[in-house]
Simulated assay, not measured.
Amino acid sequence: MPDAASRVEPFSPQTAPAELDDLQSRLRATRWPDAPEDAGWSLGTDVGYLRELVAYWADGFDWPAQERALARLPRYRTRVGGLGVHFVHARAVAPTGPVLPLVLSHGWPDSFWRYSKVVPLLTDPGAHGGDPADAFDVVVPDLPGFGYSDRPVGAPLDTVAVAGLWARLMDVLGYPRFGAAGGDLGSHVSRCLALDHPGRVVAVHRMDAGLPVPGGDPAGLTPEERAWFADVAAWGASEGAYGAVHRTKPQSAAVGLTDSPAGLAAWIVEKLQAWSDNDGDLEQVFSRDEILTNLTIYWLTGTIASSMRIYHANAAIPAEQLARRVEVPSGFALFAGDVLRPPRAWLERTTNLVHLSEPARGGHFAPFEEPELYAEELRTFFRPYRAAAQGRR
């Protein structure tokens, strides 16, 4: 049942000038580290690039213009499970057939921003070269502790708990049945929605499989699966330091990241560079304004600490929960530039796999990097499940 007395209220924040003055002052006062000559991105953030980005953030970036652009999305807040949740709720435009409600879940380090380009492509496909019959009602919540949703004041919520909140949110919005999709942490949330609410989720689409613990004797895995787990271990050793910090001691790093916008940028921008399909040039896929919009949302909402703590919560999810098989019809898009792309055998082992595509371009942030490809992927996958989700709009 919907939360008692849930009210859905329009939301359009406007930043006070004093907050932007403080941000600019901090940026201009950055104390920079030294860096080995020609280190580039090999040791983490490219300090030379970051200095240029920070200079533009301080003296060239127009946040009020970006804030107005984001306000063109229909944004709301309501309370579910005792938490204030911010979300985009965009309804289908001129549909010619059954409308499928779709909840999209983001990951780290982003927010509803991840889907800001793709929302109009999904709600109004006819205006973007698609079939109007493929229109969705789109819901894009900020995870608790991310963006403009409330930060949990007690123990951080794991993705199982977040999935429960999203089920309640869809109740509040009048959607008894719906599709779910996501990537990164949002893939975990979508998976848990399908596991815990199979009577409501008609189908689930994910950009990655997550890493549930394999059951039984590893010798029973295929050679491709065993090779993939070896790749996962190697990636964790070379690239996983951020995750270890988030899982174990997030508050230690969060002090500096919350105090210094340049430090925040260093922590996040390196992941945008490493995980996107950019041929070594970050601004090939993200403009400076786009990068800084994501960073400024984190800075103004003060959510870097709370966004990191979800890793700590997820680390305590029991192994038997992680090993559950998803029986809801499942689809995957393994974009060419994404990290840790699992083999088909693993997807078949862990889900009711009915769809698998491998787009030739796009990375971990594909909805933002390649919104047209991502929108077409969702239209194609969910097309057979539209009639199953009819209910009150």
Rank of each mutant, 00 (worst) to 15 (best):
273 Q>A: 03
273 Q>M: 04
273 Q>T: 04
273 Q>F: 07
274 A>K: 10
274 A>G: 12
274 A>W: 11
275 W>C: 15
275 W>T: 15
275 W>Y: 15
275 W>R: 15
275 W>N: 14
275 W>L: 15
275 W>M: 15
276 S>M: 06
276 S>C: 00
276 S>E: 03
277 D>Y: 13
278 N>P: 11
279 D>R: 09
279 D>K: 07
279 D>L: 05
279 D>W: 02
279 D>A: 06
279 D>V: 01
280 G>L: 04
280 G>Y: 07
280 G>P: 05
281 D>G: 00
281 D>K: 06
281 D>S: 01
281 D>A: 02
282 L>T: 04
282 L>Y: 01
282 L>P: 00
282 L>I: 00
282 L>M: 00
282 L>Q: 00
283 E>Q: 12
283 E>S: 00
283 E>Y: 05
283 E>F: 12
283 E>W: 04
284 Q>E: 10
284 Q>M: 11
284 Q>C: 13
285 V>H: 03
285 V>L: 09
285 V>Q: 04
286 F>L: 13
286 F>N: 09
287 S>H: 13
287 S>E: 12
287 S>L: 12
288 R>H: 03
288 R>S: 00
288 R>C: 02
288 R>W: 02
289 D>E: 07
290 E>C: 13
290 E>Y: 10
290 E>S: 13
290 E>W: 12
290 E>V: 13
290 E>I: 14
290 E>G: 09
291 I>W: 07
291 I>K: 06
291 I>V: 13
291 I>P: 02
291 I>D: 08
291 I>Q: 06
292 L>K: 01
292 L>H: 00
293 T>N: 07
293 T>E: 15
294 N>E: 12
294 N>C: 13
295 L>A: 03
295 L>E: 04
295 L>I: 08
295 L>R: 05
296 T>D: 07
296 T>R: 06
296 T>F: 07
297 I>Y: 03
297 I>L: 10
297 I>E: 11
297 I>M: 04
298 Y>N: 07
298 Y>S: 14
299 W>A: 07
299 W>Y: 14
299 W>L: 07
299 W>R: 13
299 W>F: 10
299 W>H: 12
299 W>D: 08
300 L>P: 11
300 L>V: 08
300 L>C: 10
301 T>W: 10
301 T>S: 11
301 T>D: 08
301 T>A: 09
301 T>Y: 10
301 T>R: 08
302 G>R: 05
302 G>W: 05
302 G>S: 03
302 G>I: 03
